[in-house]
Amino acid sequence: MSLTSSLLRRARTPLLVLALAPAMSCSVAAKTLEVGPDKTYKLPSAAIAAAGDGDKILIAAGEYFDCAIVPANNLTIEGTGPDASAVMTDKTCGGKGLLVTTGKNITVRNLTLTRARVPDGNGAGIRSEGEGLTVERVKFVNNQNGLLANPTPQGQIIIRNSEFIRNGACNPACAHGIYVNELALLRIENSKFTETRNAHHIKSRAARTEVIGCDISDGPNGTASYEIDIPNGGSLVLRDSRLEKGPKAENHSAAISIGAEGVNQMTREITIANNSFRNAGNFPTTFVVNMTATEAMLKGNKLSGTVEPLKGDGEVQ
C-alpha cells in the first residue's frame, strides 16, 4: 500500500465515526409512566395517550372510571397492586371496549376489566385490533365480551393466568368469554372461565387454538352454550384442563364443537388429551362434536355424567 493510500484510509475513519454518531444518539430510552391519585397521570387513558412505542405504564391499585384506545407498539400496561386491584370499569371507547388495542405487540398485565357495555352488544374488556397481544393475570368480569379480537390473520394472542367471570350475552348478538376472529394462533394457558352467560366460554376462528391447563365450567348458575367453539375448523389442542357443563346450560348438545358454521380453513390437528369433563345437567351431551374430515384424537380424558365421548371422525383411547 502506498503512503498516499494509507493517509487516505486514516483520514476517512474519523469521518465515518462522526457520520454514525448522530444516528446513534437519536435512540430514545423507553419511559415508565405512572398512574394513580398521587402520580403524574390520574387516569390510565392519560398515560396511554402520552406513551410512545416500547413504553411501560404502571397503574396503582384503585377504581378508574376510564377507557382507552391504545395505538403505541410494544407497550406494556400493568397494574401494580396485588391481585389485579387496579380496576377499569363502566366506560367504553369507540363503542368497543375498556381497552381498544390498535398497536402491535401489546402486553396487558395484572388488571381487572369490568362492566363493558355498548349498544351493539359487543362491549369488551379488551378489543384487540392490532397484531400481537399478550394478556397475563387479568380478570375480565361481567362484560359483554371478555376479550374480542378483530381479524388479524398473521397475529397471535397469548393469554396466561387470567380469569373470565360472568361474561357473555346474546342481546342483540351473541358475545362470549373470549371471541377471536381470524388469527394465526390463540393460546390460553392456566386460565379460568366460569358462569359465562348464553354464549360460549371460548369461540375461536384462529388457524390454531391451544387451551392448556385451564378450568372451564358453567358452575350452578352459568348458562353458556359450548365450552369451546371452533366454528370454521382450524387446529385445536386441548389438554390438561377441567371442563364442566352445568345444569342451566342453554346448549345441551356438546361441550366442544368443531366446524358448526362450515369448515373454511385447514384443520391440521385435533388433539384432546388428559382432560376431565363432567356433565352436571340432567340431560345427555357429547364431549366433542367434530364436523371436519380431520380425525380427532381423544386420549386419556375422564368423563362423568351422561356423556358420549365423540361424534364425527376420530378415535377415543
Rank of each mutant, 00 (worst) to 15 (best):
M24G: 15
G62K: 05
R9M: 10
P231L: 03
S25N: 09
V288E: 00
T292V: 08
T306C: 07
T152A: 09
D55A: 04
R137N: 13
G62V: 08
I158H: 02
D313L: 13
C174T: 03
A46T: 11
G123S: 03
S217E: 09
G79F: 03
N301E: 05
S276M: 08
S27A: 14
N105F: 05
K248S: 11
R166P: 05
A175N: 00
K311N: 12
P151V: 03
G97C: 01
A293M: 07
A173H: 11
M291W: 10
F193K: 02
I158T: 10
R166L: 11
G79P: 04
S204M: 06
I188Q: 01
N282R: 12
Q317E: 10
L33S: 07
V289A: 05
T294K: 12
L58R: 14
V35Y: 00
T306W: 06
I59T: 02
E269P: 14
F193A: 05
D38I: 14
C26R: 11
F164K: 04
E210W: 08
E34D: 10
C93N: 02
T134N: 03
I126C: 00
Q156V: 15
N74R: 07
E210G: 11
G246C: 09
F193C: 04
L43T: 15
P14K: 07
E163R: 15
D66S: 12
A47C: 07
R117M: 11
V100Q: 03
L303Y: 11
N282F: 09
K192G: 07
E129C: 13
A30G: 11
N105T: 14
D55K: 00
T4A: 13
Y41N: 02
D240Q: 15
A50M: 07
P172E: 03
T76M: 07
L99P: 01
E250M: 12
E308Y: 13
V141Y: 08
G262Q: 01
T40H: 09
I57F: 00
C170R: 15
E261I: 12
S162L: 04
G94C: 10
L133Q: 01
T209F: 00
I159K: 00
P14Y: 03
I165W: 08
Y64L: 05
E136W: 05
N161Q: 14
T89F: 05
G36E: 04
T294M: 09
A72H: 04
A49E: 06
G36I: 09
P220K: 14
L111K: 06
A293H: 09
P151Y: 01
V211Y: 02
A255T: 06
I228T: 02
C214S: 04
F277A: 04
R109N: 15
P172T: 10
V118F: 01
C26A: 14
A296I: 11
K104L: 08
S276N: 11
R197I: 10
H200S: 14
E315I: 15
K302F: 07
L15C: 05
L133V: 03
C26W: 09
N122E: 08
V70M: 02
